[in-house]
Simulated scan of single mutants.
Amino acid sequence: MTQVKRAGPWTCPSDRQSTLALPLHVWPDRSSEEILMQLPHGAVVALVDGKHFELHRNTGDESNPELAALVSPDLDESNKAGGAGRDSSSANPTGHQIDEDAHAAAATQWLNTQVLGHKIEKLVIVASPRTLGEMRRHYHKQLEVALVADVSKDLIGKTGPDLIAALQAA
């Protein structure tokens, strides 16, 4: 099944009664045909979870991506106020969620700085679902412009062809 989206207020000139919009854009249904993510040359892929932060760069092109590992930076995780009003309690006795939120906020701050400094032009963020939710709260507007995709998956530790396959299936 395909989905059709009306692209503008134009009507078919041959039938004044028609409400058909022209031009029409047709997108294939995901269930009938897999849509693959395109990873631009030079794009940085950031893998993040509550404790880890890994970086890769596409040294290939869109049709044949090749990921090279980059050195992960040291993050300043001292901002424990980054979490959404969480505090240590009986439900979270160790406060580990606060530490994970601080890690997500620190990773996002580092990415924001790199995008604002024009060191990253295209970015893909892959993070565990909980971490990605926290990261989205800290996205700068320019990071959102540079963002090719953000994917809610835990792919920490995957490299090379396994990571590319997982991204293309996302």
Rank of each mutant, 00 (worst) to 15 (best):
G82R: 02
W10C: 08
A102G: 07
N64T: 11
T2I: 13
A81Y: 01
E33H: 12
S90C: 04
T131S: 03
K51T: 10
T59Y: 12
R86A: 11
T108D: 03
A169V: 00
P40M: 00
E100R: 09
E54N: 12
D76Q: 04
N112K: 06
K5I: 12
L24N: 06
Q38E: 15
T19Y: 13
P28F: 12
I156E: 01
S88I: 13
R16K: 15
G50E: 05
V71W: 09
T94C: 10
R86C: 06
Q168F: 04
D49N: 15
V71C: 07
G42W: 02
H103G: 02
M37V: 10
R130T: 07
H41R: 05
Q97K: 14
W10L: 09
L67W: 01
Q109S: 10
S152R: 10
H140G: 08
D61P: 00
E62T: 15
P28S: 08
K119Q: 13
L163D: 02
L36M: 11
Q3C: 07
L163N: 03
V115A: 06
L75T: 11
H140I: 01
L163G: 00
A84N: 14
L22Y: 14
R136S: 06
S90M: 10
K5C: 07
R30F: 05
A7V: 08
E77F: 04
P65N: 08
L75E: 10
Q17A: 11
D49F: 06
L70I: 02
M1T: 14
K80V: 06
I156M: 10
I164D: 01
E66I: 08
